[in-house]
Computed example of a mutant assay.
Amino acid sequence: MEASVIIPTYQSWDDLQNCLDCLAVQTIDPGLFEVIAVNNDPNDPVPASFRLPANARILTEAKPGSYAARNRGIAKAQADLLFFTDADCRPDPDYLENGLKIAKDNPEVGRFGGDVVLFPAGDDWTAPELYDSLWGLEQEKWIPKGRAVTANLIVRRSLIDRIGPFNDTVFSGGDMEWNDRATEAGEPILFAEKAKVGHPARTLHEHLLKARRIEGARLRRNARRGFVNYIPPIQKLIPSFKTLVRFLQNPDLSTRRAFDLWGVHYAIRVTKIAEVIRLLWFKRPDQRK
């Protein structure tokens, strides 16, 4: 067994089916890898019509959060090289072949960030989707900072044994926190450009959910600051004119499109303020969907 692919899933059986269908047509022999999908909602059973490849299995993790689900997959994985991706990702046919090759060519490296290519839901990009393509999963830009998103992260088990698994107390940002630990431990990271997965660009609803999850994770990380956390970032109510200028200066964007993207950016800013108030002032629980 050369590779274990670990995929958390939460109420997303259709997406997971598409992801597994992509993994079923990889260019390497299916006997060389296993696929472990981890259902993070025990009350949402596998549909009767679900097609599970022979080298795949589905586990269940009751503790809420994709990082808890990933840790469950790590504990049950058989290979030394772990490929993390998401249920809504679409791995290229040579995704595993290229991931295995870069790992073999660089035995001294313990982690690799594969390329994440965004695609729209329809023929044309909506403003939120285009915003995501400009500000979203820019894996190549994260790598020099020692980070990579779990939509396409390849890790040697020995590295996880050394620095520990993901922080399973957060709903978002756990991939960056884990990579920060690896970087602080002196572990290098390489960009696996040819190990590609496709990822749907986010809708506005998905952008706002992501913003809320990030704020929840930030507040937990900064819990020691006490009452300071209760002060909402009111300055975010002021639109970022620096961001507008950045959009207006983009030669690929019309003026109207630039203002549309600016509106998406502002909606995310306001959502972050609202989430601080909701979590801390009204003591509401974190939201996943």
Rank of each mutant, 00 (worst) to 15 (best):
F84L: 15
F112H: 05
A62L: 03
R90M: 11
A77I: 02
R72H: 09
E61T: 06
A77F: 03
L130K: 06
D92S: 13
L81H: 03
G136L: 06
G114N: 06
A68S: 14
P64V: 01
G73T: 02
E108A: 14
P91H: 11
V109S: 01
N98C: 11
V109G: 05
V116E: 14
F119C: 04
T85M: 10
A87S: 15
D92N: 11
L81K: 03
V116N: 10
E140Y: 07
E140L: 00
A62F: 02
K104L: 05
V117W: 08
E61L: 04
D92E: 15
Y67C: 02
A87N: 12
E108D: 15
D86Y: 04
L82T: 06
D124L: 07
A79I: 05
I102V: 15
D105G: 04
D86E: 15
G136E: 06
L81T: 14
G122E: 15
W135P: 00
D115W: 01
G99Y: 02
C89W: 02
K63F: 00
F84E: 14
Y131N: 04
N106T: 09
W125M: 03
F112Y: 10
G65F: 01
A77T: 03
G110N: 12
L134V: 00
P120E: 00
A62H: 04
D124M: 07
D92Y: 14
A103Y: 12
A103C: 10
P107Y: 04
C89R: 03
A75P: 10
S133F: 11
F83N: 13
P107Q: 07
S133I: 01
